[in-house]
Write a protein that binds this DNA or RNA. Structure first.
Lengths: 165, 165
DNA sequence: TCCATGAATTGGACATTGTCCAATTCATGA
DNA sequence: TCATGAATTGGACAATGTCCAATTCATGGA
């Protein structure tokens, strides 16, 4: 039997505050959402939430593995609720869109370094870079190094991904 | 016959200025060097170089593929002169040390996404995360999410990597 | 040698993103 | 009921990279 979000928080040693629940729902509503957008979505839902509170909640949820924090180059931190499956991401160099792609292995680390240099490796982070279908269709070729494009790339379009079962 | 660095710049449509040559040497001297450190090293060498000039030179060199820009999560941008071999990186979660690891394939993209979602993929960026031998030896376990650790992680120790032949 | 023009200078302002501050109040949960 | 973790406020701060723009420098072709 699945736990309610509040129960999940308590199971992880966190008080189930309205703010944390709103943050969780915001992250569930938009995969790869930024902290700024979490604040905006949560504020609409519960009326007011402090910026400090948003960051505190996000950090607490990440620390307990309830959400995942990713940060493609040139992007602010993004948060997603698909955790524990070690999935990877496709990132568009033009518009910054981020979508999920399943990991062939399903757990970390899913790749073996040719030479581990004595490192205790616990994760192989993979990001596939390229051009998304929309930017390809529009014939966009603007470089990641273009400052304007980089700024735009940091604020991607929201792209639906299949919800995990 | 190999080209001198100045000739290489000219071949790539860049004027061979003292500043650009100093920046190239700084990047060659310390793999995964930050922009700040490039400025410091170059200033020692040629007496004075503007911050704007350092950023301009770095961006021009990256744009022409003469150096490569990477940015592990939680780190400022880093620059290296190993280009064209699609090598990957090992990053220490504790101290932020970054070392190279050869790509098994040697060119991009070296991995195939399970589902490319219609993206035109040109690179699979891989970063192996874990604990470096030094931090393991010291028994350090401090988390990447620890703010102090994150700040320290952004300024890693300089680690020798084999020079490319 | 001349000179067009790309490059560099100065050095602060700006932008973004995330953290820090700290006294006080809120609200969760035992 | 109440201890204590959480949230509030809202600006300050920090780090990193970009922008500004008039002026000067210096590269490299003629």
């Amino acid at each position: 039997m699945t736990l309610t979000p509040a129960e999940t928080l308590r199971r992880h040693g966190l008080q189930a505050t309205a703010q944390r629940l709103a943050v969780l729902r915001a992250v569930a509503s938009q995969p790869h959402i930024t902290a700024d957008d979490v604040a905006a979505v949560a504020a609409v839902e519960i009326g007011t939430i402090s910026r400090q509170g948003v960051y505190d909640a996000l950090n607490a949820l990440v620390q307990r593995g309830l959400i995942r924090r990713i940060q493609p180059v040139g992007s602010p931190a993004r948060y997603e609720d698909r955790v524990n499956d070690n999935h990877h991401h496709l990132v568009c160099r033009i518009c910054g869109a981020v979508v999920d792609v399943d990991c062939a292995v399903g757990s970390a680390p899913c790749l073996t370094a040719k030479d581990d240099r004595g490192y205790e490796i616990d994760e192989a982070e993979v990001a596939y870079w390229g051009r998304c279908p929309e930017c390809a269709a529009q014939g966009r070729t603007s470089s990641r190094l273009d400052p304007a494009a980089r700024r735009r790339r940091g604020a991607p379009r929201v792209v639906a991904t299949p919800t995990p079962s």
